[in-house]
Design a protein around this nucleic acid. Structure first.
Lengths: 141, 141
DNA sequence: ATGCAAATGATAATCGTTCTTATTTGCATT
DNA sequence: AATGCAAATAAGAACGATTATCATTTGCAT
């Protein structure tokens, strides 16, 4: 159990709801979870947390750098553990599974384009929405 | 005035609110407008349209292919006239202005990456959030 | 001019998220 | 181990964007 230290070093008190949420992200099958996902999974595990707390904790974790927030289509925010690397996302239109990728060529082109237009990149997001080409979509929800 | 034909060919009755909205997109300074933007500008022009109608019309125009919808950060949908071309967006963090660009190298890399992972791209969005590097941001709201 | 389906406007409802506030908890100090 | 207090929580109200409901109005073919 090394989670309390994670929280401590992030300047966050080691409370039960925070440990539960962090644990969920570290042990969940899907890397990408919405606030609703987190809330429901905690309730299903018998944990008794409030939805407002989930939202607060997710935002705090994002600010602390423990989680990264993404805005996929559909409006709702989705979070994932911050592995320290940057990557883009392919969202499967069939099952909603999110696959990650990183392409240095794309990244450097973005820099060139932005610089050429007189902008300094602060952040960017590349989302590809696609169909899995295998006969049966392998990513069960 | 060629707008009524636009609507007709899209299978939409030529009504006053729809003409107003279409006209606004064709004559507005900013290419990218939210439902709220459209509603407020119509009210400001003395036109009396309902907010619900604006939302409905925007969605219909999107489905008819007259407008394209984008989801920038901040949650709300933004629309622009469909010019038929695909392009990506740089959003100025200072003033909210949206600049468009198209980079074939990025596009082709995306195809390669998606194919390599076993996906067929249906749609994608690349949003760069950046600061304008000129001393004074030239894009006044 | 007439009729009727389609479109509108006002408003209620919904969804994701944030705010408010009274209560509870973590944890440092006795 | 008991105490105190700031920080964190839970419940529900509030919020902003969007969608649904429904009675009224409008476009347009007859």
């Amino acid at each position: 159990m090394h989670q309390p230290e994670h929280l401590k070093s992030a300047g966050l008190k080691s409370t039960l709801p925070r440990l539960k949420v962090l644990d969920l992200f570290e042990n969940s099958k899907e890397r990408h979870l919405s606030a609703e996902d987190v809330y429901k999974q905690l309730l299903a595990s018998g944990e008794d947390v409030g939805l407002a707390t989930v939202y607060r904790v997710l935002t705090q974790f994002e600010q602390a750098g423990l989680l990264v927030r993404h805005h996929f289509e559909g409006g709702k925010s989705v979070f994932e553990l911050n592995k320290g690397d940057h990557h883009d996302h392919i969202v499967c239109l069939q099952c909603g599974h999110v696959e990650e990728f990183h392409d240095p060529a794309i990244e450097s082109r973005q820099q060139k384009v932005a610089t050429g237009l007189g902008f300094a990149i602060r952040d960017h997001s590349l989302h590809i929405y696609a169909d899995c080409t295998k006969k049966k979509c392998p990513h069960k929800r």
